[in-house]
Design a protein around this nucleic acid. Structure first.
Lengths: 197, 197, 197, 197
DNA sequence: TATGAATGAGCTTTCATTCAT
DNA sequence: GATGAATGAAAGCTCATTCAT
């Protein structure tokens, strides 16, 4: 551990934050392997050993970013479960709120989202975890009579994660839609489908 | 004329095919950077210079795999456009056919699919291209009156690609659903939605 | 005046002593290069700059240990010279006394002995110095008629140092023999040899 | 392993031998840590990767040297055991022969001897192993009636190893004595002792 | 008497790639 | 069609040491 793990004054905290922020950019832009510590520290205006004052290794700083992403996202997903006894008319709006919160988070730091969703080796695992949470929410909501019963919620949950992931980059990141709009449109699609009514 | 301007006899063809096949496995399993040429040639039973007889570079062999994937997938997508004047009742089945063909292809070579969809830098680009094609199909099908008009087909197309991508790994690769089932369920979801009718 | 020209109060003295003691353990256990200042200070509960308050450098603290060892050992060796006019019958006992004192010292602090005898670059030099002193003792004792004249006392002295060094680790440190026993047995061997009389 | 372990032509063998020889010098002169691979390859006229073509690591090349030393020395020691039924008058000569062979080997490559006896971490272990072999020889020779029975052969063996080690550097390496002389003098000392007869 | 923060200098190791044969 | 041998270029990481406070 060396000096890592000792108390840090405000200067140290600032240095570490700067390194984290630059690392986020670099990892998101160039991927893990193409990101060089030498480059990060150069942009941060410190030397290589300083980097190792705050992070164990290249893997460690990357992991710190991924873990933060995962925690935030799973928390938001958990919070999106709907209570029972809701008026069916309010359903679309209520679902959209949860989804919108997720899109807000994903939109907050594009670079971090890229890392968590596409760059990290855990990306797949994270998406599965989110899908699990969503599936569990959907099943319980299905039991509450909010949704039709003849559909496999595992498929819906996985599909929803795919939709979120894809629209995040194609629509949200490009500024084509705002989180709330996107949430509303997805809810519309998933609730009512494409059929000509 | 093969790679690098040399004529290749059957031995050369065999070596090249072997290298390609092993490379597919390695890239899919370990990613681009963790895949070492030294490892590929060891498993293929040839030396490093032999590798360079068939491929310009590590990038080149990787690109060969990705391009193949992209071509096959875009072709299949193009073929899935529906002609006009269809009976609306046959619609779900007809859509499912196209989708099923795509899942069949994705299921054919898991490793190649992983490369094209998740490992390659172009993954995002490929998905966008597929989404473009699907969007164009959907819009024209929408004009044919097959779908409701008050929905943004860009969103639907991107979403569909996300659904395909995600369910490919979570369901198809794990053998939980067959291509046809998966196609049918997705069509069901996208046509009729989740609402309790 | 202490190290580096500063007066040292009792706290400083304690810190320095602690550093020295921990350094002894570390150097003896891990060797010079494997011993990290960062490790020493961590175990001592101080920071790196504090270390440099008491010692110029890693070399300096090491040197302090080695010098102490050397001084003590050479002093003991000098004291072991026998006066002339001794009764030949008391000879073995008298020699053993000197040798025993040396073993006592070597046994006092195993870690320090390891450093002085095996780890330091000067180890060889120290042993040569001891051998010189012993040789000079032996030659003068030889002139006093205590030993046979047809033997090269340089060889005997060097050999004796080798014996001391080796038996220190193989016998003394393992607690197999006490200093006095060891001294007596060595004297027996060196005086009378292995021959079947 | 990379390319290591493949068949090597005569050029490769030469490169490896050169690296080994230079490494021996460097390790013996500067110790393990002060020896830099960069220095070894510079002196060998090759680049760093070439080094790793032949050796796994710095540790590995060092180990190769130490193992060779250990094997040679233990073999020689085993061969020095005396058969039973010898004329007691030939004893000193016969013992000296074995000892002389050992000194010849130690004198052959001073640098390698330094590594095996003083630089390697295993040095102590090697000496113990040699002492074990010698002890076993001595005990069996003692049973054959070649030596007095009232002496602990463990002590003699360890002592002898110390004597060998020390005289190797102080006498042999400096050219003060030849292997045979040295062997003879040591035998004289160990058989008859210092006493004035 | 002590520390938080930082660094200069350097080391081992890796890998894609190539040349001569 | 294939190989033994070699390399250019760099990357991650470590450590003793110091400055400002």
């Amino acid at each position: 551990m060396g000096q890592r793990g000792r108390k840090q004054g405000s200067i140290g905290v600032k240095s570490k934050a700067k390194l984290l922020s630059i690392a986020t950019d670099e990892f998101a832009t160039n991927g893990f392997h193409e990101t060089k510590i030498s480059n990060i520290v150069k942009k941060a205006g410190v030397t290589q050993p300083t980097f190792y004052l705050y992070f164990h290794s290249k893997e460690a700083i990357f992991q710190e970013l991924v873990s933060h992403f995962r925690t935030k996202l799973t928390d938001l997903t958990k919070e999106s479960r709907l209570e029972s006894g809701l008026d069916v008319n309010t359903l679309p709006g209520r679902i959209a709120v949860g989804l919108s919160a997720i899109f807000h988070f994903l939109n907050e730091d594009h670079q971090l989202t890229k890392i968590g969703f596409f760059i990290s080796t855990e990306a797949d695992d994270i998406k599965s975890q989110i899908a699990d949470l969503i599936a569990s929410n959907l099943v319980s909501e299905q039991k509450d009579g909010y949704f039709r019963k003849d559909i496999d919620m595992r498929i819906v949950a996985d599909g929803l994660v795919g939709v979120i992931e894809r629209l995040t980059v194609t629509s949200l990141f490009k500024g084509l839609k705002k989180p709330d709009e996107l949430a509303r449109e997805i809810v519309d699609l998933f609730l009512y489908g494409l059929q000509n009514q």
